[in-house]
Design a protein around this nucleic acid. Structure first.
Length: 194
DNA sequence: ACATCGATCTACT
DNA sequence: GTAGATCGATGTA
């Protein structure tokens, strides 16, 4: 196994719940004009076909269109008036499933993150879905970005995150008991909620 | 056209 | 613990 390899398209074709766990520990990298900003993925949520909490559950709209397309693309949407959320599109074309990235452990570009967030405490930089998009400068222009391109991509650096906890998802009103939120025990101090 | 709501976060109590 | 911010997508007319 080679280290520091970009996740292949095939990664996004496995079962979305399995992929939500497998992506924990991978590194999300954004190459911006001002420098590289990256963090280790440590909290995810799975959104599935037939899942009432999934944006795509009521059919295709301009907003969720990318979820119905090719796997390994970014679904970025705007919510609550001033936050963006970043998702990984999984499954073949026609099947609209995704993984919401909820928290990162900051790695590179921490200075830029602090500036983008106007915060100093490292655990305040990426501990929430809206926080990490602000820290990494991920906005609407990156909706539909190909995660196998050179601007925004995921790296496997060989890190093993150990035991993973499954809990109900946060901030939804349907399917509230499904345990489709995942984070590793080892990173509990960096996630959005314990 | 217009009203409603949201996969949230912050600041304050 | 909760109010308030703030705007695009969506549903209804």
């Amino acid at each position: 196994m080679m280290n520091n390899s970009k996740l292949p398209r095939k990664f996004y074709l496995q079962n979305t719940i399995e992929a939500s766990k497998a992506v924990l520990g991978k590194v999300l990298v954004h190459r911006t004009n001002e420098g590289i900003i990256s963090g280790r993925i440590i909290e995810t949520e799975a959104y599935l076909q037939g899942d009432p909490a999934c944006h795509a559950n009521r059919g295709m709209t301009p907003r969720n269109e990318v979820m119905f397309g090719q796997p390994g693309h970014a679904y970025v949407y705007f919510t609550y008036g001033f936050h963006y959320c970043f998702n990984l599109v999984t499954q073949p074309e026609g099947i609209a499933e995704a993984i919401l990235i909820r928290a990162l452990q900051p790695l590179e570009g921490i200075k830029l993150m602090k500036r983008n967030r106007n915060k100093e405490n490292p655990t305040d930089l990426c501990s929430g879905p809206g926080k990490l998009t602000q820290a990494l400068a991920i906005g609407k222009p990156l909706n539909k970005a190909d995660l196998l391109g050179d601007q925004l991509y995921l790296i496997d650096d060989g890190t093993d995150v150990g035991e993973i906890i499954a809990k109900p998802r946060i901030g939804i009103k349907e399917a509230v008991h499904e345990p489709w939120r995942f984070y590793p025990v080892e990173y509990i101090n960096w996630v959005s909620r314990k």
